[in-house]
């Protein structure tokens, strides 16, 4: 019953035989041993498993591996380049937008897609934009800041201050 599929992940093509019911997230984590993509629920609500499929943010627990046949996937492991961190990674680190880090990969990938369509989003747009991703630790304030920071960096604008407003 296994099916042969070819999925490109972070630029590398993988041809594998999989059960038709295998979830994309398990293909990535279990079969291909890239564990940066996480699983936080069984109802497609948390977004910890978010990856980019042909540039679109998808919940990889809600996609079958066979549906990704012929597609190109970006996971957290594919964000940084030889030149260094992706602006979204820098934004998260500089703005303390993560505590436990479990939601972070999915949150960053969703943010990358958001910034692609809306390079200079308002706080409200960011909050709605990431509302498919749950974070239990940070309270979201700093995730908003991190995405604004990454947006500024990608636009080549002056970077906003990363000092905490905690007086």
């Amino acid at each position: 019953m296994e099916k042969e599929i070819t999925v490109t992940i972070n630029g590398t093509a993988h041809t594998v035989k999989v059960e038709p019911r295998l979830l994309l997230v398990h293909l990535i984590r279990e079969n291909l041993n890239m564990t940066g993509t996480h699983i936080g629920c069984d109802t497609s609500n948390c977004g910890a498993c978010t990856v980019l499929m042909d540039g679109k943010a998808v919940k990889s627990c809600t996609i079958l591996a066979v549906q990704a046949n012929g597609k190109s996937i970006t996971t957290v492991e594919g964000l940084a380049t030889a030149e260094g961190l992706h602006p979204i990674q820098e934004g998260f680190k500089e703005n303390h937008a993560l505590h436990c880090g479990f939601c972070t990969p999915g949150m960053m990938l969703r943010a990358v897609e958001l910034l692609k369509h809306n390079p200079n989003p308002t706080e409200e747009e960011i909050r709605w934009g990431i509302s498919g991703n749950l974070c239990r630790c940070t309270g979201y304030n700093n995730i908003v800041k991190a995405i604004q920071y990454a947006g500024a960096k990608m636009r080549g604008d002056k970077l906003p201050s990363t000092e905490p407003q905690f007086v």
């Binding site: 957290v76 998260f92 680190k93 500089e94 303390h96 993560l98 880090g101 479990f102």
Partner: peptide
Amino acid sequence: HSLKRKEDARFIQGKGHYVDDIK
């Protein structure tokens, strides 16, 4: 000091090591 976190480097690059990552 508002030192940036030392642990973040691994988390933002998918190199955190959680229990389900153990094989």
